[in-house]
């Protein structure tokens, strides 16, 4: 009664896993709802902290936009494996050939999609509060945010896998993610500042792209290694 397996392509596996996560999110809406609420609260904090009434408020706006993105990224990313770990579903996936690579790309795509969704709202909120018309300066701000969000998610997804079984995970993920993403924050904020001033932001974009490439490569490699152990279920006592 042997059934022939037609080993699916990586792309197909990624799509299946992504589809599964999207379906679950549509059913519960937990991550999207909490992340949107969180970003609204964050922007209101910027207002109450007095950022919006300063003289050069629009100069500071890109920095705050990026900071808010980083915070939201942490929120999205730390929950990456929560559902799969609950009953050990990750282990079943790891037995499947090629699935750990597919899982990395599916989770990366999923996190990036959610983050981008929230960033759109952030862009509107921050733009409104600081009276910055982002699109008057071309698509540089949005482009940097999109590219940079990918980098944030690449590092974040890797860290989420690495630290999935760790105690105090909620604190350690940002503590590691933020310093690693310093090049992104600098380049992203500077790209936006340059765009607003009317300068070219191309060099900053290249930096962001380099960051993305480097960390997708490393992340993909380390992700597999991390899950190998963390997903083993048995844990490692003592």
């Amino acid at each position: 009664m042997s059934v022939p397996h037609r080993t699916p392509t990586l792309l197909r596996q990624v799509w299946l896993l992504l589809q599964k996560d999207l379906r679950v999110e549509m059913r519960t809406g937990e991550v999207v709802a909490t992340s949107l609420l969180f970003s609204a609260v964050l922007v209101s904090l910027f207002v109450f902290a007095g950022f919006s009434t300063r003289k050069a408020a629009s100069e500071g706006a890109p920095g705050l936009l990026w900071m808010a993105s980083a915070f939201v990224a942490v929120l999205v990313v730390t929950r990456t494996f929560e559902r799969e770990r609950e009953d050990g579903a990750v282990t079943a996936l790891l037995l499947i050939p090629g699935a750990s690579t597919a899982l990395f790309f599916a989770k990366l795509a999923y996190n990036w999609l959610l983050l981008t969704l929230v960033q759109v709202v952030l862009l509107l909120l921050v733009g409104g509060v600081f009276s910055v018309d982002w699109f008057a300066h071309g698509f540089a701000v949005a482009g940097a945010l999109l590219l940079g969000g990918f980098g944030l998610c690449a590092v974040g997804t890797t860290l989420a896998a690495l630290l999935a079984a760790m105690r105090l995970r909620e604190v350690i993920v940002p503590v590691v993610l933020f310093p690693l993403c310093v090049p992104l924050l600098i380049s992203g904020a500077q790209a936006s500042v340059a765009a607003i001033r009317g300068d070219s932001s191309a060099a900053w974009m290249v930096t962001i792209a380099l960051f993305d490439l480097l960390f997708v490569g490393l992340g993909q490699w380390l992700f597999g290694l991390a899950l190998e152990v963390a997903g083993g279920g048995e844990g490692d006592s003592e």
Binding site: R6, L16, V24, D87, G88, P97
Partner: peptide, 30 residues
């Protein structure tokens, strides 16, 4: 790929239906 394992954990994802869970695994194995 030739190992089938039922462990002390169910290895299932609660939010999915039974059919979706099996379809996912089937799709990933091909």
């Amino acid at each position: 790929a030739r190992v089938g394992w039922v462990s002390h954990e169910s290895m299932l994802q609660r939010e999915l239906t039974g059919r979706e869970q099996l379809a996912l695994i089937a799709g990933l194995y091909g």
